[in-house]
């Protein structure tokens, strides 16, 4: 469903992503792993349109070319994004944060399953988003993204700065949501155990290049680990 071909991204003169090509199948879950500064965020941000891709790159979602379009058009086309650092709207209440996700109009109101998956959001409905804990903000960011009813959910390091018990909970939620909503997931990670728990296919990114791609079943774990340790 998502076909990335020859993706190149640069910040001014500094060329960060080099010729990335990969494919995400409908309903599949793919993880991109790599160390700090290898280009995971840059890659994912270019998919959602927060940083521009270079000329000649192609990002194709179900036959629609997305390069050059604005982020909100890509969300309309079926992408949703949970950024690193979560970036919920701190001055809006939890409920208002969720309402901002309804812009695609695929749901008329906040779907009740969101509160069922993340009960803490229901309890804190009227609190300002900025006053939630890190883990709660992460759940809010995921719920906000799902409120647009995406076909592909993109998450950038969802485990960063979150305690292990909550990490497990987020992994469980993502697996359950994927099964229930029949969406595809693309997630970047440094925590290999989390990546293996949610994804069935792995990409390894190193200095802006995709250096390995394999199904979870026939993965050389030691080799992947060698890319993740300094």
């Amino acid at each position: 469903m998502l076909k990335v071909h020859n993706l190149n991204v640069a910040y001014g003169e500094s060329h960060v992503i080099h010729d990335a090509s990969f494919l995400v199948q409908p309903g599949a879950a793919m993880a991109i792993v790599g160390r700090n500064g290898m280009g995971k965020s840059t890659l994912l941000k270019s998919l959602i349109g927060m940083v521009p891709a270079r000329h000649g790159s192609s990002i194709n979602l179900e036959g629609r070319e997305l390069v050059g379009t604005e982020s909100h058009k890509r969300v309309q086309a079926g992408l949703a994004f949970v950024p690193q650092g979560r970036l919920i709207f701190p001055q809006l209440t939890v409920e208002e944060n969720l309402l901002t996700g309804l812009e695609t109009r695929r749901y008329k109101e906040i779907p009740s399953f969101l509160y069922e998956f993340f009960p803490v959001l229901k309890d804190m409905r009227n609190r300002k988003g900025g006053n939630l804990s890190g883990g709660q903000q992460q759940q809010l960011a995921i719920a906000r993204a799902l409120a647009s009813k995406p076909r592909l959910l993109i998450l950038d390091e969802p485990t960063e700065g979150i305690q292990p018990s909550i990490i497990k909970e987020i992994a469980r939620s993502l697996n359950a949501l994927r099964a229930e909503l029949n969406i595809a997931i693309l997630v970047s990670e440094q925590v290999l155990s989390f990546a293996l728990e949610v994804a069935d296919r792995l990409l390894v990114i190193d200095r802006g290049r995709i250096v390995r791609e394999a199904d979870k079943a026939n993965l050389n774990l030691d080799e992947v680990r060698s890319y993740l340790t300094v």
Partner: peptide, 13 residues
């Protein structure tokens, strides 16, 4: 509050 993120949740900024 956040222009880039607003667009990334689907708002026509």
């Amino acid at each position: 509050q956040n222009r880039a993120m607003s667009s990334a949740v689907g708002i026509d900024t």
